[in-house]
Amino acid sequence: MSAGAPKPLGRAKVKLAVHGVSMAYPAHDKPIQVLDKIDLDVREGEFVCIVGPSGCGKSTLLNIIGGFVQGTAGEVRIDGEAVTGPDRRRIFVFQERGVLPWLTVAENIGFGLYDLPPAERRARVANYVNLVGLRGFEDAYPQELSGGMKQRVEVARALAVDPDVLYLDEPFGALDSITRLTMRSELLRIWAAEKKTILFVTHDIEESVQLADRVAVMSARPGRIQKIVDVDLPHPRDLSDPRYLAIRDSIFEEIGIAHRV
């Protein structure tokens, strides 16, 4: 599938370059090799999904790219600069677990805006509260919200600091299927409007083909990038389009499972 028609993104510059990243966790006898020489380039404004079987190291890879964990080999560069730690220009969305329980919805969304004057901060928060449809819940505490609402708080908090890159680790995994569909189109809308670079981990192959410009398919442990699949379809995607189905089936095949039950 890599021979799609040339598209505008092809000309965009490389935003994020992963080069030879490996990771081994120490264990009792010998270290467990989790990632094996991962190479991946992501262009500015691109939406890349990483899929792979459970336990293959997707979260580990994303945490290394985000600067939270140090890989045992290789490096990650963003705009040509080596990543040494987390940064406010690149926000990681931790499912809903990153919502701080002692802050209200509004305080959570404003969490990263500490260097703005209060009036501006309030305006920015109100804007993102609206964007994710949480009006009326500004003063609610996280434990009063549903899982999907908490998820939206995290996304809004990430967007509020206007980062250039978003990392999402199975952000919709815990949501019911209806909320998941709405959140997907929300994310695509935001991505189209704000032109962020997005790196999105999921184990849901359908989800990856619905969202991404490219899908990186990882092999089971030790994780390698087995194949990168271009999804050269315009948004909104028609889920009965034969080309969509062909791409989806090719990924199922790549992972080695029949998708028919």
Binding site: G66, F68, G85, P86, D87, R88, R90, I91, F92, F94, R97, G98, L100, W102, L103, F111, G112, Y114, V161
Partner: peptide, 29 residues
């Protein structure tokens, strides 16, 4: 303290003082 909350603070670039005041102290209270 939930390690994810500490990671959130690092991600948003909090200084050590802010990290203690805005995340560590509320988390342990």
């Amino acid at each position: 303290v939930n390690a994810t909350h500490i990671n959130v603070a690092r991600n948003f670039g909090l200084s050590s003082y802010q990290l203690v005041r805005r995340v560590l102290l509320p988390a342990v209270t």
